[in-house]
Design a protein around this nucleic acid. Structure first.
Lengths: 201, 201
DNA sequence: ACCTGAACACCGTTCAAGT
DNA sequence: ACCTGAACACCGTTCAAGT
């Protein structure tokens, strides 16, 4: 057929990512295929390979959107007012994000690149921005210890919050409901902070 | 061709599961296919569908083996002597299992059944056995509160341990090494226990 | 009774050929 | 320059036909 000129390259990339994201939201990663994306945007499968390296590359870019969205939500929660401590607010926002878009959040952990292929630098950058935000929200709550000690504690705490979120979202542990998870995170953060403040630790 | 009689049905099932497990250990879930299993055991693809409902059913049975193996490891660690408290021992054993067989451990969380299909009862039973063991190992360390409160605390703590394990195993957060994870879990468990023991919480 | 393998409806990915 | 679509090498799954 030849050129269509109905879409700029950037529009076409966005069209592909929109379609991929919507398939994943509806059916999970297992439901995604390059041919299904092509059908939805009404281009041939080959076109996807003009815009992206391969299907993994498309998925990685959807993940990039998810990381950006999560980072934005966390930053909103941190700048807005609230009675609760920042560690609680950021932890609950992390859980809420995963509850609201479980398949997108899950994508970050269920998608694996083929062995020996590296994550692109832009992806690692987004990851660092996100984990840095979690740690910077939590670390100031700890008054004792060196900056490094406080960073370590912040990492441990947010990894722990991630664990509760992970089990709540995994369809294999339905015994943990999202309401349970809210309470569990509240307890965990409170108890952990109390433990740090306690003498002799 | 017709019958071979070289294997009993049970042997054939085990052969299929052995092959599936070894493919997953080497290449992850993405590397698994029914046809590759068939090639390895030198039967036709159709034979797999005589023994199992479909490929998801095969994977579920491999997961069953993983759950059994993990449960056994945890029970060994709990009955053997040790200076450290049971909560520490069981938490570190959980991490060690995931570090030693990352792809098998990961399988439990990356494999999803098609929407609206239920987990079989035998699988749910194994899950309950495992989570029950974690909770029963941890709960006795808490002296205060009702049995229910202690169960809740145990769940929160093991979910938190799971989170550190998850981030250490995920190839996307290489910043957390398994040595980091050992320390993080040690800190988390100690601090959480201190927090529970602290007044006013 | 047990196992096969052809058949069907899908994939990811490439690339010569069209406009 | 941009996009196609046929082609290749794979899949999961079924089931009539063979021994």
């Amino acid at each position: 057929m030849g050129r269509r000129s109905t879409h700029t390259p950037q529009q076409l990339r966005d069209l592909i990512l929109d379609a991929a994201q919507s398939i994943i939201e509806a059916q999970g990663l297992a439901g995604l295929s390059a041919r299904e994306i092509a059908r939805r945007i009404e281009y041939s499968p080959g076109t996807i390979y003009n815009m992206f390296q391969n299907l993994d590359d498309v998925v990685l870019h959807v993940e990039g959107r998810v990381l950006d969205g999560l980072d934005q939500r966390l930053s909103e929660v941190l700048t807005s007012a609230g009675d609760k401590p920042p560690a609680q607010r950021v932890a609950q926002a992390y859980l809420a994000f995963s509850t609201q878009t479980p398949r997108l959040w899950n994508l970050l952990f269920e998608h694996h690149l083929p062995q020996s292929t590296q994550l692109p630098a832009w992806y690692q950058q987004k990851l660092e921005t996100l984990t840095g935000r979690m740690e910077q929200a939590i670390a100031p709550e700890f008054t004792d210890g060196t900056a490094e000690t406080r960073r370590d504690s912040a990492r441990a705490l947010w990894a722990a919050v991630h664990g509760i979120t992970s089990l709540a979202t995994a369809d294999k542990l339905t015994s943990v409901t999202s309401q349970d998870a809210v309470r569990m995170i509240d307890d965990l953060v409170t108890t952990y902070l109390a433990g740090l403040a306690a003498p002799k630790h």
